[in-house]
Design a protein around this nucleic acid. Sequence first.
DNA 1: CCATAATTGATAACGTTTTTCAATTATAAA
DNA 2: TTTATAATTGAAAAACGTTATCAATTATGG
Lengths: 147, 147
Amino acid sequence: MPNDPNPIPGWLECIARSGYRLTAPRRAIVDIMASSDRALEPLQVYDLGRQSCPGLGLVTVYRTLEKLEELGLIQRVHQPNGCHTYWRAACGHEHLLFCTACGRAVHFSGDNITPLIEKVSNQTHFTIQDHWLQLFGLCPQCQQNNL
Amino acid sequence: MPNDPNPIPGWLECIARSGYRLTAPRRAIVDIMASSDRALEPLQVYDLGRQSCPGLGLVTVYRTLEKLEELGLIQRVHQPNGCHTYWRAACGHEHLLFCTACGRAVHFSGDNITPLIEKVSNQTHFTIQDHWLQLFGLCPQCQQNNL
DNA sequence: CCATAATTGATAACGTTTTTCAATTATAAA
DNA sequence: TTTATAATTGAAAAACGTTATCAATTATGG
Ligand SMILES: [Mn+2]
Ligand SMILES: [Mn+2]
Ligand SMILES: [Zn+2]
Ligand SMILES: [Zn+2]
């Protein structure tokens, strides 16, 4: 399912299979989160969502984002200037690369920090269970705009 | 200055040299932040600070943490369950390893992700300017306690 | 010691997130 | 198709972490 051109049916199925109901607000939020090319804050999801689901409430956005995160479909994104955004979750072992100018995000894979983890574990006597790696930069479009 | 057994004088000098005044609240907060072995939230700094500086206000904690971060003496720490804590800043190019049980933190160095950055940059056409790396695990003490 | 501007703590304001609750609605059973 | 049920909803209020305001205090240099 990596780079699925239309992940929305899969997300809806995941929601239903988990025993949650498929409602208009949830469909609207899934549409937005599954297809956005950048990380979004709850208020942005709310504004976008009201275009297709006019009565949508902000509280429902928070609740739905929480559920999508719990189902592993989206993940919270941490940035130097705040940690209030969400983006679709990685498939397998991938990390995030962000454009600091526009928020556009991509996943990448291929980090090999196992030797480093081994070394740090030996030096510190910590058991290391997880790691975060994030790259920050400028996307091609924003490089153009900053010329 | 790495692993300075007593970094407090250096922090105070840094504050004074930057044109800021040395006050009792600031000394109390510097004492706490320079010697803590774990990341602390503002409210924790406040509670600890009032032990040696009874009149200390929470607002002063926020203002002082902001200043220490601006001076590069402390840094905000991002964790899966919140990004409200601060810890002393790294010396040079270092990253953080956290105990998920007790919050104890250590710096480590020696990551070499330059080849990865090169590869991802070529694949994505992003210009990559910065990176975050954090390791999560269990410190020796917490491994003992969980036996 | 004095003059001055920086700093302080109390208070109020702020924006984000969570809780509460009655009304609505998706779903499965009849 | 209808009905019963519990899940879900949006509005309102509350809670939370953080920031702005302001008069009183205090560190600093002269
Ligand atoms: Mn990795
Ligand atoms: Mn590095
Ligand atoms: Zn961009
Ligand atoms: Zn620990």
